Computed example of a mutant assay.
Amino acid sequence: MATHKLLLDYEEKEKYSLLAIHCSEEAYKVAYLLNKHLGLQLKREVLDLDYSRENIDISYPLFKFDDSFEYTTFYLVANKCKSIVAVEAVTTSLFSEDTSEKTVTNYLLPEFKKVDFFLKIHSEYDVYPLQDIIGEINKIKQIISAYHLEAESIKSKNNLIFD
């Protein structure tokens, strides 16, 4: 009996630009600064990005602004999430259980561990003034640096699907 194998080589490419932001502030403060200096209206989503790895619940704060006049959507998401994990110690005693807590850091995009936040810009236009946005972000004194990431350098692209 003949076996038929179907291969699906089509991969829909989402048009977006990704900016890396280095900043030691909290996510809500970064959203506020971007709103103030870029004229955005980033608001916290009702549901954060939730993942579960190795029995650890991971939640990344997600902010969104949908600019209907420019046909552009902005997403601000944190790259780091710190979780507390209970670790049970092996004991020889019959009645004592030693448990300790350990903090584990998880990354949305593990290949960019030094990046604190990502600004994903999804636009209907082929050309979007990224250099202007990067220049304005770098003028903010609380932000250390911001720069554009090429799509080819991102290995964990599936983690950037927010819808």
Rank of each mutant, 00 (worst) to 15 (best):
S52Q: 09
H148D: 12
H148I: 07
D57R: 08
C81E: 03
E101K: 06
L49K: 05
K155W: 09
L33V: 10
L119H: 00
L40V: 09
H4V: 11
D50P: 04
L130Y: 05
V90G: 09
T103F: 07
K102D: 14
A89N: 15
E25D: 13
A89S: 14
A151P: 02
K64W: 08
I56A: 12
S145R: 10
G39F: 04
A86M: 12
P129S: 04
N79S: 05
L119T: 03
L76G: 00
V85C: 09
L149R: 04
D126A: 09
L130P: 01
A89T: 14
S83I: 10
Y71F: 12
V115N: 03
Y10L: 12
E88Q: 13
T92A: 12
D66G: 05
H148K: 08
P110V: 06
T103E: 14
V115M: 01
A2L: 09
L18R: 00
H22F: 15
E25H: 05
E111Y: 11
K15R: 15
V77F: 02
A78S: 12
L108I: 02
N106P: 00
K102S: 09
C81M: 05
L7N: 11
E97Y: 05
H4Q: 13
Y125R: 09
A27V: 04
Y147M: 08
E136H: 10
L94C: 15
E11W: 12
V87Q: 12
K43P: 07
Y128S: 02
I140N: 01
A146E: 03
S17Y: 12
K5T: 13
V85S: 05
I161E: 14
F63W: 01
H37L: 05
E97I: 06
H122R: 11
L33S: 09
S156R: 04
H4F: 12
Q41A: 15
L149A: 03
L94K: 12
V30Y: 02
K64M: 10
K113N: 07
M1R: 04
F65P: 02
E70S: 11
K36L: 07
S93E: 15
F74I: 00
H22L: 09
T92P: 11
D50K: 10
K13N: 10
D9F: 11
G135L: 10
V77R: 00
Y28G: 06
A31N: 02
L34E: 01
L130W: 03
L62T: 00
K80A: 07
D163N: 13
T72G: 08
L8S: 08
M1K: 01
T99A: 12
C23H: 03
K5H: 13
D9C: 07
